[in-house]
Design a protein around this nucleic acid. Structure first.
Length: 495
RNA sequence: GGCGGCAUACCCAAGUGGUAAGGGAGCGGUCUGCAAAACCGUUAUUCACCGGUUCAAAUCCGGUUGCCGCCUCCA
């Protein structure tokens, strides 16, 4: 079975075949840089990061373009509010975006073009549309519009009929437009606004035209995959498609992929509801890898609910995976010599089979429209077998074939997880990072805790268990749980 | 008003015609001074409801109810 993807255009899963064998042209709508990014953006970039990673994993030479919209009304408004210019606003939030992406372990795309670097290409595209009579300017110096009625397929992507939409109550009324759904290609500038020269007077590009121009410039007239959030289907992607296909008369995109939204406690996240979380803020409390596991625990097209509980589950799950990896590293030193497969199988048939079956199970899940939730389920199954195997040895170190089997299991787990951007850290590093992050919410310092552990150790040695338990309960109330082991007492944060 | 999506155990979540993955939580057990962690066992004769198609349905079709999204900037 090969890769199947759900195409918004056909509303079905289709076999993925790129236009050019072995090569994929991928374009994902980036952000408008007028504010910090929120966790909805985080979901989108993580989802497409995984798609990008998986395409590369399948051996496709993938060209991934993700733009920045660095000129638009919201940016200008923001600049006016902050008494600066649009460039300063855009640059500030481009940097912030890059910081977020780095923190989230999102791979850099092949190219990240700016809208303002492509004004010339947009003007050329609008010129073509004007020459074909598909675009019009109602009066000299006015905005330039795209005439939706001149493009027969308009509405096909979003599944709406022109007539239905015109009849709808929420379409803006604009006397300049031939049809209320006509949209701006070139926006005439008011005095004082940023402006570029054009055959239609000074102005700036409309929102949709930049993606059409950049797709064409960097990837050609037909892309394999165009992605973005569900909300972009209409009008943004519908309009991009109309512009590009009307201008170049070739199919614009072979597969349209759209990710679902992030809800907060079952409500749509929005600024007006005040349930708005920026990536920056969230990462102060949640490990970026836990956020990634949270996102990938549900299929990318479904809505996902961001709550304390769902995030805590992701954190516990990740901790569990890393704890097992750490245990293997600690207790299964690389053995000398070669061991036949039969010897490994003989150690633990179930674990051996879990290791052997993971590659196929993982690929079947991912091939099925990037079913990361299922793929992760398979990883947990392997983790459980691995941990069970380790436990069979009690506190003893594993040797020979047993050690080799455990290492085979942990490396398989890490290799598959890497394809979706998980488990890439050293287990001890992750556990330490996560603990440090969580510690902030307890109001304690690591030193406080170590001191308490020392006092409790003394009490235990004196068999003063009442005092030892009192210290332990006190820490637990503050969110720190102690775990005694023959090697000493470990602690972790449980809030 | 138009278009579309979803409904699986206490919670999260796969499964898309062949007899309910996985995770969390709970309960019982092992371990422990007692715990915690970990492991073992256990938790849906059933997939919102009602009909239909089929040898076979959570999966397909029709209807009902409930929730949600888009149609306006939006990931």
């Amino acid at each position: 079975m090969s890769l199947q993807v759900f195409n918004t255009l056909s509303k079905t899963k289709e076999s993925f075949t790129p236009l050019e064998p072995g090569k994929v042209k991928l374009y994902v709508c980036g952000v408008t840089v007028y504010d910090y990014c929120h966790i909805g953006h985080a979901r989108s970039v993580i989802v497409f990061d995984v798609i990008y990673r998986y395409l590369k994993h399948l051996g496709y030479e993938t060209t991934y373009v993700r733009n920045f919209t660095d000129i638009d009304d919201k940016i200008i408004r923001r600049a006016n509010e902050e008494n600066t210019d649009y460039r300063a606003v855009a640059d500030k939030y481009i940097h912030a975006f890059r910081d977020d992406m780095e923190a989230l372990d999102v791979l850099p795309p092949t190219m990240e073009p700016l809208a303002t670097e492509n004004i010339h290409e947009m003007i050329e595209l609008i010129r073509i549309l004007m020459e074909k009579g598909i675009a019009y300017q109602p009066a000299p110096g006015a905005d330039v519009y795209f005439a939706v009625e001149r493009f027969a397929d308009y509405g096909k992507l979003s599944g709406r009929m022109l007539d239905d939409m015109v009849a709808g109550a929420r379409v803006e009324v604009d006397a300049n437009k031939h049809n209320p759904l006509d949209f701006v290609l070139w926006k005439a500038s008011k005095p004082g606004e940023p402006a570029w020269e054009s055959p239609w007077g000074p102005g700036r590009p409309g929102w949709h035209i930049e993606c059409s121009a950049m797709c064409n410039r960097y990837l050609g007239t037909t892309l394999d995959i165009h992605g973005g959030g569900k909300d972009l289907v209409f009008p943004h992607h519908e309009n991009e498609k109309a512009q590009s296909e009307a201008a170049f008369e070739t199919p614009f995109v072979r597969y349209w992929l759209h990710n679902g939204f992030v809800n907060i406690n079952n409500e749509k996240m929005s600024k007006s509801l005040g349930n708005f979380f920026t990536i920056k803020d969230v990462l102060r409390q949640i490990h970026p890898e836990a956020l990634r596991l949270f996102v990938l625990s549900k299929h990318y097209r479904s809505p996902v609910d961001f709550t304390d509980e769902t995030i805590a589950e992701a954190e516990r799950g990740l901790e569990k995976l890393y704890t097992t990896l750490a245990a293997v590293m600690e207790r299964a030193p690389e053995p000398q010599g070669d061991f036949p497969e039969k010897a490994l199988q003989g150690q633990d048939k179930e674990l051996y089979e879990a290791v052997e079956s993971l590659p196929q199970a993982f690929h079947e899940a991912m091939d099925n429209d990037f079913n990361t939730a299922q793929a992760i389920g398979h990883m947990f199954a392997l983790q459980r077998h691995l941990q069970r195997f380790l436990d069979r040895f009690g506190r003893k170190k594993l040797k020979g074939a047993a050690a080799r089997l455990a290492l085979k299991g942990s490396s398989s787990l890490q290799q598959h997880a890497a394809v979706v951007g998980l488990l890439g850290r050293d287990p001890q590093v992750f556990l330490a990072e996560h603990r440090t992050l969580k510690l902030k919410s307890t109001g304690l310092t690591a030193q406080d805790i170590e001191q308490s552990i020392e006092r409790r150790k003394q009490a235990r040695e004196e068999k003063n268990f009442a005092e030892a338990d009192r210290i332990r309960d006190e820490l637990e109330q503050k969110g720190v749980q102690l775990e005694d082991s023959p090697d000493g007492t470990r602690w972790r944060v449980i809030v």
